[in-house]
Design a protein around this nucleic acid. Structure first.
Lengths: 116, 116
DNA sequence: GCCTTCTGTCAGTTCTCGCTAACGTTAGCG
DNA sequence: CGCTAACGTTAGCGAGAACTGACAGAAGGC
C-alpha cells in the first residue's frame, strides 16, 4: 500500500515524502559533504566523523538523517557501521525535479480558469 | 574570477553556493508548491498568495528566497510582479547532483591515504 | 571475565527559519 | 494631488534543527 503505480518506486513511503526528506537532508552543507565522502568509497562512521571538526555525535545524527531519507545505505561489519551513497535515490530526486513540469497539476488549474 | 571553467555557469556566484541556496529553498514544502505553480504559467505575487492559506507576507518571503536562489525569475509590470520558474536553474542543480560522483575529490583523498 | 574500540542515543542549549502584524513604497486612477 | 491597489520590508515570536557532553550497548582482544 502507499504506491499508486507499479513504477520505479523503491520504498513503501509516499514519493513526495521521500523527495522532501532528501531535499531537507541535502539542504545542510555538512550532509552534502558527507554524501560526497561516501559517494565512491564506503566508509565507517568514525572515519567520516574524523573528516569534520564537529563532534561524532553531530555526524552520527547527520548520518541518521541521510539514512532515513534514503540517500545513504548502512551496512554493519562487526562493531563498525559502513555507509555508502545510494545513487538510485539521487536519480529519483532528479526525476522528481523534472516532475515539477511534467505533472500537469498547474495546467489543469489554468484550463479551469480559462474556461470561466 | 570565481568560475573555475568556462562551462554552463550562469551567474557570478560560486557554484556550490547557488546549489546550496537552491537546495535550501526546495527543502521547504510550500516553496516547492510555489515553484510548481509558476512552472508552466507566469503568475503575479498576489495570485500566488491566494492559492495558500498563509499570509501574503509569508508568500512574499518565500518568493524572495526562491528568487535569490535563482529558481524563479521576477518581471515587473506596473505595480505587479510576475514570477516564473527557471528550468535552467533546476537543470544546473540536477547536474550538480551528478557532480557528487564525477567530482573526483573523494578519489583523490583515497589515493593519498593509499600511498601512506 | 575484563577492558578497549566503535558507535548510537538522550537531555539540554543555541541558533536558524517560517509565520504574523504593522508599516513603507511604487504605480495607476480620478 | 489625493486615493487606492499591489507588493516588499521590518520587528518580534514560536517551532524546529544542529551542536555538545554524558551515558549505554555491542563486538573483539587479552
Amino acid at each position: 500500500m502507499g504506491g499508486t503505480d507499479g513504477g520505479i518506486v523503491t520504498s513503501p513511503a509516499p514519493l513526495d515524502d521521500r523527495v522532501g526528506a532528501m531535499l531537507r537532508a541535502l539542504a545542510e552543507p555538512r550532509r552534502r559533504a558527507i554524501l560526497r565522502l561516501v559517494a565512491t568509497t564506503e566508509r565507517a562512521a568514525g572515519e567520516i566523523a574524523a573528516e569534520f571538526e564537529v563532534s561524532r555525535t553531530a555526524v552520527s545524527q547527520h548520518l541518521t538523517v541521510l539514512k532515513e531519507s534514503g540517500l545513504i545505505a548502512e551496512r554493519r561489519e562487526g562493531t563498525r557501521r559502513l555507509y555508502r551513497a545510494r545513487r538510485e535515490a539521487v536519480r529519483e530526486l532528479q526525476a522528481a525535479l523534472d516532475g515539477i513540469w511534467s505533472d500537469a497539476l498547474d495546467r489543469a488549474r489554468a484550463l479551469v480558469e480559462e474556461e470561466s
